[in-house]
Measured scan of single mutants.
Amino acid sequence: IRLYEREDYRGQMIEFTEDCSCLQDRFRFNEIHSLNVLEGSWVLYELSNYRGRQYLLMPGDYRRYQDWGATNARVGSLRRV
């Protein structure tokens, strides 16, 4: 999964292949505005340590956080399923 700091895949990008319990420890931002799921399925959590609202993401492109059903861009952790 590739996470981007801004909409439309702009700004700083980070790629994950494994679970991350605290996004801010690995990426200086806690807001993700766009992403690409390259393979497999992922769950994004609004808070760190896999807490808060959850969003199940299938392979595909998500140009804005609204595309995955979120009401804001906050992402605290993520897990591959």
Rank of each mutant, 00 (worst) to 15 (best):
I1C: 10
I1N: 14
I1M: 08
I1P: 00
L3A: 05
E5Q: 09
E5K: 14
E5S: 12
E5P: 11
R6P: 00
R6W: 08
R6K: 08
R6T: 10
E7R: 07
E7P: 14
E7Q: 09
D8G: 09
Y9T: 15
Y9E: 13
R10G: 09
R10C: 12
G11E: 06
G11W: 00
G11T: 00
Q12L: 03
M13L: 10
M13Y: 01
M13I: 08
I14G: 05
I14W: 05
I14D: 13
I14P: 00
I14K: 05
I14E: 11
E15G: 06
F16G: 11
F16Y: 01
T17M: 03
E18Q: 12
E18L: 09
D19Q: 12
C20H: 05
C20K: 05
C22D: 13
C22F: 14
L23R: 02
L23D: 14
L23H: 00
L23M: 15
L23K: 08
L23N: 07
Q24R: 10
Q24A: 08
D25R: 07
D25K: 14
D25W: 05
D25H: 09
R26D: 07
F27M: 04
F27L: 05
F27D: 10
R28S: 11
R28D: 14
F29W: 11
N30P: 07
E31H: 12
E31F: 05
I32N: 05
I32S: 09
I32G: 13
H33T: 06
H33M: 12
H33Q: 12
S34E: 00
S34L: 00
S34H: 01
V37A: 10
V37N: 12
L38Q: 09
L38P: 10
E39R: 10
E39A: 13
E39N: 08
G40Q: 07
G40M: 04
W42K: 00
W42L: 03
V43R: 10
L44W: 01
Y45H: 04
Y45F: 02
Y45W: 06
E46Y: 01
L47S: 13
L47A: 07
L47N: 09
L47C: 14
S48V: 03
N49S: 05
N49P: 03
Y50E: 01
R51C: 08
G52E: 01
G52K: 00
Q54E: 10
Q54T: 11
Y55P: 00
L56K: 11
L56D: 15
L57W: 01
M58N: 11
M58E: 12
D61C: 03
Y62W: 11
Y62I: 06
Y65Q: 08
Q66A: 10
Q66R: 06
D67W: 06
D67I: 03
D67P: 03
W68F: 15
W68Q: 02
G69P: 03
G69D: 05
G69S: 08
G69M: 15
A70M: 14
A70L: 12
T71D: 09
T71P: 07
T71H: 12
T71N: 12
T71Y: 03
N72G: 09
N72C: 06
A73T: 14
A73M: 15
R74A: 09
V75Y: 09
V75S: 03
V75M: 08
G76Q: 08
S77V: 00
R79K: 07
R79T: 04
